[in-house]
């Protein structure tokens, strides 16, 4: 498949060493994107978590025992596995910025994309969303609500990108050259330790562009060739090693 080269490429660098696993990103995401309270939160096959924090462990006994937390949004892959299998073109990667779209009214709920995504970033609506009486007043008008039977995923809070462009137009600035922090997703905004950094990977002035080139930066399952726009950062070798399937004799990337 031919990948499109974009002038603007929104990306995230998540510093795993700074992440405390507090879950604020998950909460901010659910509120921002109108994800209804779960019917049964203990049944993980049925829940919707666009942003999900995984716990990693080095598997060693005390005193070498170490853990880490890995927040997982949609990777906005450069070569997405999901959009190529969609039979109805409900998900595409064709917009400047490189965010993979998900058009709910077009989606037929076949879930091929979910099977194709190596990151489990996609979720299916098993139930119609329901909010406890009164709570529907807290809904965000910027994100549309999804009915039962369609697939959804993290969009890097795409509506915030559109609003940032509107503001740039109002101020007579170039909407295609947004300054750092003019557009950031809810999870990056809320993160209390600043573990999630967001910006344009193609703009050398943005922090993400520098961080992504660090020798401690890695991407999940990088060798599949999906070319994700989400990078992780950890100075701990065992954490980086869990980012991909290494054979015992192989050296971890960045060593």
């Amino acid at each position: 498949m031919e990948a499109i080269e974009f002038k603007v490429k929104w990306g995230m660098v998540i510093n795993i060493d700074k992440c405390t696993g507090c879950g604020a990103c998950m909460v901010a995401c659910q509120a921002e994107n109108n994800i209804a309270p779960m019917v049964d939160g203990s049944d993980k096959r049925m829940t919707l978590t666009w942003m999900l924090v995984y716990e990693l462990s080095n598997g060693k006994p005390f005193p070498e025992h170490d853990i880490a937390y890995l927040p997982r949004p949609c990777m906005q892959c450069g070569k997405p596995s999901c959009s190529t299998v969609c039979p109805v073109i409900a998900t595409t990667k064709d917009e400047e910025g490189g965010i993979v779209s998900q058009i709910y009214p077009r989606c037929i709920g076949c879930r091929y994309c979910m099977a194709a995504c190596p990151y489990h970033s996609r979720y299916f609506n098993w139930y119609d969303p329901k909010w406890p009486a009164g709570m529907e007043k807290t809904l965000n008008i910027s994100t549309s609500v999804r009915p039962r039977g369609v697939v959804e995923k993290c969009t890097f809070c795409h509506h915030r990108f559109m609003y940032a462009k509107e503001k740039a137009r109002y101020n007579g600035e170039d909407p295609m050259d947004l300054p750092e922090d003019a557009y950031i997703p809810a999870c990056a905004e809320i993160c209390p330790t600043g573990a999630i950094v967001f910006g344009n990977l193609n703009n050398p002035e943005h922090k993400v562009a520098k961080l992504a080139k660090s020798k401690y930066a890695f991407r999940l399952l990088e060798r599949l060739g999906t070319d994700p726009q989400v990078y992780y950062y950890s100075e701990r070798e065992w954490v980086r090693r869990q980012g991909d399937n290494y054979l015992p004799h192989e050296k971890t990337k960045g060593e």
Partner: peptide, 10 residues
């Protein structure tokens, strides 16, 4: 102007 789906959909 762009006709990418995400230009007009949310």
């Amino acid at each position: 102007a762009s006709n990418a789906c995400y230009v007009c959909h949310k």
